[in-house]
């Protein structure tokens, strides 16, 4: 996944870089997504058959996000797959959301959900592991 990323890489995240500088270069300095609320475990699903050619302004990382979100992927997994900080991924996702290229499915707040059936399923599932 790391090696086949087209285009410029985020050189500041190499292994011995230590503290990063300018992590938000990719986002043009924006530190907040245009719409916030991407929970770490919110599922991102890409719009089916997106016409990415219509958006020349998007970075390779945007395109990769759309690809990875094809089957529905939580934000934190997208960040790990792209080897980008979660904060950066949120900004990029905001760009995609505002263009209608992805959908974001917020997880239920655990305080309201999950109901007891879900908790029971979790316990049963864990026992069966």
């Amino acid at each position: 996944m790391r090696t086949d990323l087209p285009g410029p890489r985020h050189e500041w995240l190499d292994d011995d870089a230590g503290p990063v500088v300018r992590p938000y270069t990719l986002t043009g300095g924006r530190v907040h997504p245009s719409s916030d609320g991407f929970d770490l475990v919110a599922y991102v699903t890409a719009k089916p058959d997106p016409d990415l050619a219509a958006y020349p302004e998007l970075h390779p990382e945007h395109r990769l996000l759309v690809e990875l979100a094809g089957r529905g992927t939580p934000v934190v997994e997208l960040a790990a797959d792209l080897d980008l900080a979660v904060g950066v991924v949120r900004v990029l996702l905001g760009d995609l959301l505002s263009r209608g290229l992805v959908a974001v499915h917020q997880p239920p707040r655990a305080t309201y959900l999950p109901d007891n059936d879900i908790l029971k399923a979790v316990v049963d599932g864990l026992r069966a592991l």
Binding site: Y43, P74, V104, Q106, P107
Partner: peptide, 21 residues
Amino acid sequence: MDSVRYDGERRGHRVPIALKI
């Protein structure tokens, strides 16, 4: 908060629930 932010077609895909611990 638990809304679908973009009500695009999901083609029968159900989005799983992810619980954080």
